[in-house]
Write a protein that binds this DNA or RNA. Structure first.
Length: 298
DNA sequence: CGCCAGGCAAAAG
DNA sequence: CTTTTGCATGGC
C-alpha cells in the first residue's frame, strides 16, 4: 500500500465531474472514506483518502514506480490548478462558488481512443447507462485481468479480496466484432458509428496518435469527419483524450450556464482555459440540479 | 409503466 | 442556411 501526500486532489470531484466512466466507488474503508476503482490503459487501481491522515493523505494500491510512471500523470498531478482557480475573481461570484465546490478537480489524461468511443456511446444516454454499456463492451473480449486487493480486504473485510476487470478494447479488437456483438452491449443506433470508427482507426485511415500534433481547430475538424461525432463528442474527445484545455464541450448544462450567468457569451479572458473552468461549472451545475430533483420528490 | 438521457444526422422549412 | 424530427436502449 502506497501512502501519498497530494494537494488539491478530490477523488469524488474527479469521478463525478463527467469526464470518465470507469472510475467508480467500490466501497469504503470507513464512513467518509470511499475507495475508488479506476480502470485505465489496461490497469486497475484502488485509491482512497487515508483515514489515518488529513485531507491531503491518500492510499493507493500500486507500487511507487507505477504511481510515478503512470498514475501521477494520469491524474494530472504535475499541474498547478490554483492558476485556474484564480480565474474566479470578485467580479464572478458564480465561478467562485463553482471553484469552491469543485476544489480538487483534475482533468484526467485519458486514452484518446477510449474517449472517442465512450463519448460516441454517451449521446442520448444517462451516465449510469453509459457506464453499463462501456463495461459490457470491455467484457466482450473475455480477456479478464485480475487485481489482488488483499491489503484492502484486510483493512475492511467488506472490500473484495480480488477484482476481475477488462481493459478497454483497442481499435483492432473492436473492428473484429460483428454488429450483433457490438449491439449486445446496448449501443443501439450508435453501433454503426462505433464499427466505422474502429475500422478507420485499425486500418490507419484515422491515425489517432498523429492527431496530437494538430492545432485545436484541426483536431476538431478531423474528429468531426467521423459519423456519429458532432461538436459535443469531438470537444469531449479533444479535452479529455488530448488534454486540449481551451476546448469547452457545449452540452445542455453548459448552454444553460452560459445563458444564465454570462448572458450567452463566455468572457474573452476565460477562453484559453475554458475547458478547465467548464469542468468546475459542470460539476457544480449538475450537483445543484440533483439537489433540486430531491426537493421536487419530497 | 412512461419518461428521458452530457447529441447527431438527415429531412424539412 | 436554420429548424425540426427520428432514433435504440437502459435507468429510474
Amino acid at each position: 500500500m502506497l501512502h501519498l501526500r497530494i494537494d488539491d486532489f478530490d477523488l469524488r470531484a474527479v469521478a463525478e465531474s463527467g469526464q470518465c466512466f470507469r472510475m467508480t466507488e467500490l466501497g469504503s474503508l470507513k464512513p467518509g472514506y470511499p475507495v475508488y476503482k479506476v480502470i485505465a490503459s489496461g490497469r486497475c487501481l484502488l485509491i482512497s483518502g487515508d483515514p489515518q491522515g488529513d485531507e491531503h493523505s491518500f492510499l493507493a494500491g500500486c507500487t511507487e514506480s507505477e504511481w510515478d510512471d503512470f498514475y501521477k500523470d494520469y491524474f494530472d498531478l504535475n499541474r498547478d490548478y490554483s492558476i485556474y482557480r484564480n480565474y474566479a475573481d470578485e467580479k464572478d461570484s458564480f465561478l467562485q462558488r463553482c471553484m469552491d465546490y469543485g476544489k480538487g478537480i483534475r482533468i484526467l489524461n485519458q486514452d484518446p481512443w477510449e474517449m472517442l468511443i465512450s463519448f460516441i456511446i454517451s449521446q442520448r444516454k444517462s451516465v449510469p447507462a453509459i457506464r453499463t454499456t462501456v463495461e459490457r463492451l470491455c467484457a466482450l473480449s473475455g480477456e479478464e485481468k485480475k487485481l489482488d486487493c488483499t491489503v484492502w480486504h484486510e483493512l475492511n473485510p467488506a472490500l473484495p479480496e480480488s477484482i476481475v476487470y477488462y481493459p478497454f478494447p483497442d481499435a483492432e479488437t473492436l473492428a473484429k466484432y460483428g454488429p450483433e456483438e457490438i449491439n449486445s452491449t446496448g449501443t443501439g443506433y450508435r453501433t454503426g458509428y462505433i464499427m466505422e470508427a474502429a475500422r478507420k482507426a485499425s486500418t490507419g485511415e484515422l491515425g489517432l496518435c498523429g492527431l496530437q500534433k494538430l492545432s485545436d481547430e484541426e483536431l476538431l475538424e478531423k474528429l468531426l469527419e467521423l459519423q456519429g461525432v458532432g461538436i459535443k463528442v469531438a470537444s469531449c474527445t479533444a479535452l479529455f483524450g488530448f488534454h486540449r484545455l481551451s476546448l469547452c464541450p457545449e452540452d445542455v448544462w453548459m448552454k444553460r450556464v452560459k445563458e444564465q450567468h454570462y448572458s450567452g457569451e463566455w468572457p474573452e479572458s476565460y477562453r484559453p482555459v475554458l475547458g478547465v473552468l467548464q469542468q468546475y461549472m459542470f460539476y457544480y451545475a449538475r450537483l445543484e440540479h440533483e439537489k433540486d430533483q430531491i426537493k421536487i420528490k419530497n
